[in-house]
């Protein structure tokens, strides 16, 4: 099994990955719209304004939708879950659901999730697991 993919990082997204390496899930926040947004960019996608801040997310969210892939994929052992997580801050992001069987019975939509960080080489990748699954 080859390695899982790692991100190509750009100047506008460096802060996000630096945050992940420090165990923080970072979003951006428009001080005019008072809205969080993702993925990173140095302006607000709702109003085009540049008055934006980098803020730490709660790391909490819910399972918004998913597929369970049975296709061979570099670095992954099928079946595995590709999920969209709705963060408590109101933004959606893709992730795998970890510490959870890749079965529909274990994946109830809207179940609470929490962020965790997966080491891949020099990178730390935000992932989500069922809230409280870490004993």
């Amino acid at each position: 099994m080859t390695e899982k993919p790692v991100p190509t990082i750009y100047p506008e997204t460096r802060h996000f990955w630096d945050g992940a390496a420090a165990g923080k899930l970072l979003l951006q926040f428009c001080t005019e719209c008072r809205k969080h947004y993702f993925p990173p960019r140095p302006f607000c996608p709702y109003c085009g304004g540049r008055a934006v801040e980098i803020v730490e997310a709660s790391g909490l969210g819910r399972l918004y939708s998913y597929t369970i892939s049975h296709l061979p994929t570099p670095g992954y052992e099928p079946p595995f879950v590709v999920a969209v997580v709705m963060l408590d801050e109101g933004v959606k992001m893709l992730a795998n659901i970890v510490d959870c069987p890749p079965e529909p019975e274990a994946l109830a939509l809207d179940m609470p999730l929490e962020v965790t960080f997966e080491a891949r080489g020099a990178f730390f990748i935000p992932q989500f697991r069922p809230l409280g699954s870490l004993q």
Binding site: K4, T8, S65, T67, F80, V82, L94
Partner: peptide, 26 residues
């Protein structure tokens, strides 16, 4: 897409059946 690569492709949805279908459970 640069952003799709950086923030989606790293989670393994390389093929359309895993990605195009993502909204359907919702």
């Amino acid at each position: 897409s640069m952003q799709q690569q950086e923030f989606e492709a790293i989670y393994g949805p390389l093929f359309p059946p895993m990605r195009f279908t993502l909204p359907v459970m919702r």
